[in-house]
Amino acid sequence: MTPRPTILAMGAVAVDHVLVTEAFPREDSKSRVVREYRVVGGCIGTAARAAAALGAKVKYAGKLGTSSEAELVLQALLRSGVDTRLVQRDETSQPIRSVILESEATHSRTVLYNLEDCAPASETWPVEEEISSSDLLLIDHFGMEGMLRAARIAAAASIPIVADFEHDARAEFVELLSLVDHLILAREFALRITATSSPAAACDALWTNARQVVAISCGNEGLYYRDRSTAKPKQMPAIRVIAQRTTGCGDVLHGAYTAAYLRTRDVPHALKFGVAAAAAHAEKPWEDGASIELKRVEQLLAQTAR
């Protein structure tokens, strides 16, 4: 039997404390909290869990301490089917801690995050063989030195790299961006780093002959993408659902795209699968965390085919 391809995931994991109010609070005001709960998030934490829940073989390499928050993250990864044997444990390393304020009326949200004692990607972990023997590398921007090392090793071994970027503050980001061949960015970030005014223009600005795809996600407007089969960017519509949340949809799209691409090597299909998974995530209540059901994703995909 041929072994399943393996995704190596490296990047941010978080514990999100969600506070839901009836309407988004104004500055210097008081608002009643109508619901509150904790979920495991983070760019790569959410993407890795989504990919594993949708049938991919995923390994997570990072550092987690022994606090209750770290244990919460570890158990969430395990429940989703993520292999955690590459997680380094120590006494002090914390996941990112976030407080998320969400409006019940509009589902808009603001994320307040704390990076104190958080351990970014290591410059020496995982060992080179773990990276070069993987079938795909899934990364974000958290820990630039470690991410650059992993991306250089993967690129030298012709291993596909999928990136979930949100920040470009470090000078090394330019090199990291150049190494990614499957680039999926949120619209606001893409427009800012390209100094363009439309998702299609951002696709063109970010396109190079070394890329397999550039996609710009635009929420309920779907996404724009350019791949090697298209001479100019194309639009892919969103799948309409009754949204319960928006936080994490982009990360789920990354994870689902990664799982589908490894299975089919078909970029447009993998993007459609990612869009369907993001819709399935959006329609579930917050308390379900990153839970994604393959059956529901396939139902949403079937709707788009009709």
Rank of each mutant, 00 (worst) to 15 (best):
L101C: 11
P126M: 11
G81Y: 08
D140C: 01
E175R: 02
L183A: 08
R170G: 02
R109H: 14
S122R: 13
G81K: 10
T124F: 07
T92E: 14
S178Q: 13
T194I: 09
I100D: 05
C118Q: 10
R89E: 07
P126T: 08
T92S: 13
R192H: 12
L136K: 00
E129Q: 15
L78N: 12
P120G: 14
S197D: 15
L176C: 08
V87D: 06
E129R: 13
E145A: 15
T106V: 03
L138V: 00
D90R: 04
P126H: 10
R187C: 06
V180L: 04
I161N: 03
E175V: 08
E172C: 04
V174T: 11
D83H: 10
S98D: 09
D117P: 00
D90M: 07
S122Y: 03
V99N: 11
S98E: 10
G81A: 08
T194Q: 09
E104W: 06
A195G: 12
F189G: 05
E128R: 13
R187N: 11
V82K: 04
T110M: 13
P126I: 08
A155R: 14
A186G: 15
A157W: 01
C118P: 01
Q75H: 11
A171E: 15
A76P: 06
L137I: 00
I100K: 01
T124E: 15
E123S: 14
G81D: 10
I159A: 04
S197Q: 14
C118F: 09
V174F: 06
S178L: 09
R192D: 14
A169F: 12
A151K: 00
R170Y: 04
I184L: 14
A150C: 07
E145K: 15
S158V: 01
S132W: 03
P95F: 10
R192T: 11
G143T: 07
I139N: 00
E102Y: 00
T84H: 07
R79W: 06
T110F: 02
L86I: 02
P120H: 05
F165P: 03
I131Y: 03
E128V: 09
H141K: 01
D164A: 08
R170N: 12
A156F: 00
L191M: 10
A154G: 05
S158D: 15
I161G: 00
S108N: 13
A154K: 01
D181V: 03
L176N: 07
I131E: 07
T92F: 06
S93W: 03
V180I: 12
D90T: 01
E188M: 02
F189N: 05
L183M: 13
R79C: 05
L191N: 07
V111W: 06
D135Q: 08
R79S: 08
E128Q: 14
H182E: 06
V87W: 04
A150T: 03
L185P: 05
V99I: 14
I139T: 01
M144G: 08
V99Y: 06
S132F: 05
R170K: 15
R152T: 01
E104K: 10
S98I: 01
S108H: 12
L74R: 11
I139R: 00
T196Q: 15
S198E: 13
G81N: 11
L136F: 07
L183R: 02
L78S: 12
T194W: 10
A195N: 15
I153P: 00
I139L: 05
D117Q: 14
E102R: 11
M144W: 08
E172Q: 15
L115W: 04
A155Y: 02
R149T: 04
L86W: 07
A169E: 15
T110A: 15
